[in-house]
């Protein structure tokens, strides 16, 4: 795995899918236990912040900015792994091109003293949907008006699972829709483990399935990660299936942008480098 060169930072086969999504679109990444979507989220960040269309020559649009909201991981994790890709999140935060909302550190811990994030970081301390919406909207505005904002929400389903009776799938979907009005495009990661989707006996399961299916129907591009069906292999971490969403309404305006549906294998090396390849290669 020593070949973590610049070229392997963004796997060539995935490159077309990682490009900044068209306006108002939703990209859904699903993961299962053992096949996390973190590496893919990092590639989206890399492509949006450093990619060829990041600091666009069409300066009317301005730079692409990213707001990362993470409910399962803290900023240290994202910083460390972004650094391996050559992405300095601190520097980008100082330039107001990146902002982080921490949904882990303060969400359910009993408050001891006021948690205050450092520059470019905001720590959520309430899982109430109205409060959440307010905080996130504020964070989007803090990135400034110029430029396109890519909203990346990592594991929004946690809010649903821990919300009990207060949060339901419809309410959460509406909140996300409200946020999407303020940004250029949205990348959302959700868990799609079969116990969460297929049985649907408890409210936790039915809510999760309803939310996931709702998002999948809204999405313009779905990349779902899963483990190999045939067991584990030394040189394969998992399978990524790329599915185009329901784009019939927009077919006439951009036919050449029609997403090619594919199923690829991927391998994440110990150093964070990723190889993506077709079956049999």
């Amino acid at each position: 795995m020593s070949s973590a060169s610049v070229s392997s930072r963004i796997p060539p086969l995935l490159d077309p899918y990682l490009a900044l999504p068209p306006e108002a679109s939703l990209v859904l990444l699903t993961s299962v236990l053992g096949a996390s979507s973190n590496w893919l989220v990092l590639r989206f960040l890399h492509r949006a912040l450093l990619g060829p269309d990041a600091s666009s020559n069409a300066s009317a649009d301005g730079d692409t900015k990213v707001l990362l909201v993470s409910f399962m991981r803290d900023l240290a994790f994202w910083k460390e792994n972004a650094r391996r890709l050559g992405l300095d999140l601190d520097k980008l935060a100082a330039k107001k091109r990146f902002a982080f909302v921490d949904g882990l550190s303060g969400l359910f811990l009993p408050k001891q003293r006021a948690l205050s994030g450092r520059g470019g970081e905001k720590i959520l301390n309430s899982s109430d949907l109205t409060a959440l919406y307010g905080e996130l909207q504020q964070a989007i505005q803090s990135l400034g008006d110029a430029g396109r904002v890519l909203l990346v929400v990592d594991q929004l389903d946690l809010v649903l699972a821990t919300g009990g009776d207060r949060v339901d799938a419809v309410g959460l979907g509406e909140m996300l829709l409200g946020l999407r009005e303020h940004v250029h495009a949205t990348v959302l990661t959700l868990s799609a483990d079969s116990p969460l989707v297929s049985v649907q006996q408890t409210p936790l399961e039915t809510d999760h399935a309803a939310f996931l299916l709702g998002m999948a129907h809204q999405a313009d591009l779905i990349m779902s990660l899963r483990l190999l069906d045939s067991g584990t292999a030394r040189d394969v971490s998992g399978v990524v299936r790329i599915t185009a969403g329901n784009q019939t309404g927009e077919m006439d305006q951009g036919t050449q942008q029609r997403v090619e549906e594919k199923e690829l294998l991927y391998f994440v090396g110990g150093d964070g480098g990723v190889k993506v390849f077709e079956r049999g290669q």
Binding site: S36, W39, N81, Y266, V268, G269, G270, V274
Partner: peptide
């Protein structure tokens, strides 16, 4: 699932 290993993506 293994600590650190699968958080990165699992492999290597």
């Amino acid at each position: 699932r293994l600590p650190v290993f699968h958080e990165k993506g699992g492999g290597g």
